[in-house]
Structures are given as C-alpha cells and as structure tokens.
C-alpha cells in the first residue's frame, strides 16, 4: 500500500458517499445514469468474486464488501425508492456497445484462461468505460447539479491517483500490471474533458454548463 493508492481508494469511497448524499438530500436521482451505476455493480461483482477464496487483507476485504453492497444499494434506490425521479429517456447510451467489446477484450487479454481471471479482465475493461453513459447523459443535458459534478470529480480523482500508484509500484516492487494500467489510462483520459470544465467553472463557483 502506498499513499497514492490509499488516497485513490479514499476518493473512491468519498465519491460513493457524495452520490448517496446527492440522492438523499435532493430525494432524487435526477442527472444520474442508471446504466453507469448498473455497470459499476457488474464491475464490482465480477471482480470481487475472489472475496470467497482469496484473503488479501482486512482493508481489501472490507472495501470489496463495501463497494459491492453500496453499488447494489444505489441500484435499489434508483430502481425502487426514487424511481419516479429517474428519466430513462435521457439515459440512452447503448450499453451493449460496451459489454460486447469488453467480453472480446477479456478473451484476448487475460493472465490465465480461467473463469475468475477472465471475469477479472472483463471487469477491468468494463470499469474503464462504465462512466460513458453518465458522461453521455451530461453531454446531452449540457448541465449538472454541483453535487453531481463533485461525485464525478471524486471518481475521476480515484482513477487519476492510481497512475502514480502504478509508477511507484514499478520502482518499489518491480511490479507492472499491463491490463490494469492500459485500462486505467483510458479510463482517466475519459475524464479529461469533464475535469477541464470542473476546474474552470465549478471550482470557480459557477454552475456546470457545457458550451452550446
């Protein structure tokens, strides 16, 4: 464990609490893509199957349980408790265009040809693009509530912090995970546009609005 990864994980945790806070305080999931949240739940469930047979650390175990539980809880909130506030007509990204290529990539790039390893690879590729329905929705509506942008910023910061973590691990542990690194770089790159608007507008106290 190094500080980059620790702060990355904490930022990931924070993003989930911000999202829950947004839903509870506005009593609405307006502006949140159900598809992205469903993809994240899929990512956590397919990646953390090793919860049942591999012990890494108490930290690792607790975080995995938390990520699976919180993502399922968010799906419940969106699908049942706050269902009327979710508008599927603007959440129109075709997730099959993401799922299909991720299955193919996992079949091509994996460390071992076994069910858990294929699912692990699949989850890594899927996580890289899971934010796309959310960003697509943002692009369509052209604006976002400030708290929603804080959620996205925390999520993007988590990915960005994993990059120095990998560089650090390369030098200190002689370890490189090419699949995670490639997917992670792509994932972080997807946030660049968002970060630009976040830093130049939201953090200056303005509303998140995309130029027409």
């Amino acid at each position: 464990m190094n500080l980059f990864r620790l702060f990355g994980d904490l930022s990931h945790l924070a993003s989930i609490f911000i999202l829950l806070q947004k839903i509870q305080s506005t009593r609405s999931c307006r502006g949140i893509s159900f598809k992205t949240q469903a993809l994240y739940a899929t990512v956590f469930i397919t990646r953390y199957l090793d919860l049942f047979y591999e012990w890494v650390s108490l930290y690792n175990f607790t975080m995995k349980v938390f990520f699976i539980a919180s993502s399922c809880y968010i799906l419940y909130l969106m699908k049942y408790k706050y269902r009327p506030t979710h508008d599927p007509s603007i959440d129109t990204f075709r997730v099959e265009y993401l799922l299909g290529p991720c299955v193919v990539l996992a079949l091509l790039f994996h460390y071992k040809f076994s069910i858990p390893e294929l699912l692990w690879s699949f989850s890594i590729f899927l996580e890289a693009v899971a934010i796309l329905p959310q960003l697509f929705m943002l692009q369509r509506t052209g604006e976002a509530e400030t708290i929603t942008t804080h959620y996205l910023a925390a999520l993007g910061a988590y990915r960005a912090l994993y990059i120095p973590n990998w560089i650090y691990r390369y030098f200190t542990e002689d370890m490189v995970d090419p699949i995670a690194v490639t997917a992670g770089l792509v994932q972080t790159a997807l946030y660049l546009d968002f970060f630009y608007v976040y830093f130049t507008k939201v953090l200056q106290g303005q509303k998140f609005e995309l130029p027409a």
């Binding site: 990864r5 994980d9 990931h12 090793d50 591999e54 890494v56 650390s57 690792n60 975080m63 995995k64 990520f67 460390y111 692990w120 994993y162 973590n165 542990e173 002689d174 370890m175 490189v176 995970d177 090419p178 699949i179 995670a180």
Partner: peptide, 10 residues
C-alpha cells in the same frame, strides 16, 4: 524480471 501482477488492488 518483473513480478507477476497480483490482484491486490481494488
């Protein structure tokens, strides 16, 4: 030689 990646990240 590089160590084999272990799935110890989240």
């Amino acid at each position: 030689p590089l160590a084999e990646p272990k799935h110890d990240e989240l």
